Simulated scan of single mutants.
Amino acid sequence: MGGKPSTIPKKELQDRFHLTNQQYDDLKQIFKENSKGKSELSKKEFRRVYSGRFPGNATKFADKMFDCFDTDGSGTVDFTEFVIGICMMDSDKVEDKINIAFSLFDSDKSGSIDRVEVRDLLRAYNDLFGTSANEINPQTVANQLFDAMDRNNDDSISKEEFTSAVHKIPELLNLIRPDPGD
């Protein structure tokens, strides 16, 4: 997967994501606090960000988000990857949100989503909130969701099918920004 991408200059990140100086500085401060001043966030540090905000076990979900942010597969998230990931999750552009949501589902990076990936993401999401298996059965919900997205019934969800599903079920994008107040 190669080494770290070259750092994108502040101005370029600000222009790409319409960030004010204050927003950029706020992201830099959040990154610095969580990385303990280092230039990269480890998976363990990334988990801590989620663990402090949710009542359940955040490990699996944080790991999935970490893998989305770690675009070069280096095992760490640098500041540029952090800003891009955060900004895509918060973007006004639905396409940015679709891209990161698809990446979140497609944990094996195969370019398509299978039933196990849908189930695993829903389980990780439920774990964030400490949801009991008696309340919500992730396998049942995953099967229903998968069947709704798999338009051609080939047991695989392509990016095109996922995009179409998001336009019909916009709540799918809520998975990329779980609200601890839920």
Rank of each mutant, 00 (worst) to 15 (best):
residue 1 M to I: 10
residue 4 K to Y: 15
residue 7 T to A: 15
residue 8 I to Y: 08
residue 10 K to T: 13
residue 13 L to H: 04
residue 17 F to S: 04
residue 27 L to A: 08
residue 27 L to C: 06
residue 27 L to V: 11
residue 30 I to K: 14
residue 33 E to S: 11
residue 36 K to M: 10
residue 36 K to V: 07
residue 37 G to Y: 04
residue 38 K to S: 15
residue 39 S to D: 15
residue 42 S to G: 04
residue 46 F to D: 05
residue 47 R to N: 14
residue 50 Y to N: 08
residue 51 S to M: 14
residue 51 S to D: 15
residue 52 G to M: 06
residue 56 G to M: 11
residue 60 K to P: 09
residue 61 F to H: 01
residue 62 A to V: 08
residue 65 M to S: 12
residue 66 F to A: 08
residue 67 D to E: 12
residue 68 C to N: 05
residue 70 D to H: 01
residue 70 D to V: 00
residue 72 D to K: 11
residue 72 D to N: 12
residue 72 D to P: 05
residue 78 D to A: 02
residue 79 F to D: 06
residue 80 T to Q: 07
residue 81 E to M: 03
residue 86 I to G: 02
residue 88 M to I: 01
residue 89 M to P: 07
residue 90 D to M: 10
residue 95 E to G: 00
residue 96 D to H: 04
residue 98 I to F: 01
residue 99 N to W: 01
residue 100 I to C: 06
residue 101 A to W: 06
residue 103 S to D: 14
residue 106 D to C: 05
residue 109 K to Y: 05
residue 110 S to Y: 04
residue 117 E to N: 01
residue 118 V to H: 05
residue 118 V to Q: 07
residue 124 A to V: 07
residue 134 N to A: 15
residue 135 E to T: 15
residue 137 N to P: 03
residue 137 N to F: 05
residue 143 N to I: 14
residue 144 Q to W: 00
residue 145 L to Q: 05
residue 145 L to F: 06
residue 146 F to K: 01
residue 149 M to T: 09
residue 152 N to M: 00
residue 155 D to V: 13
residue 156 S to N: 06
residue 158 S to I: 10
residue 164 S to T: 12
residue 165 A to C: 01
residue 167 H to L: 04
residue 169 I to M: 13
residue 170 P to W: 00
residue 172 L to H: 02
residue 175 L to W: 00
residue 179 D to F: 02
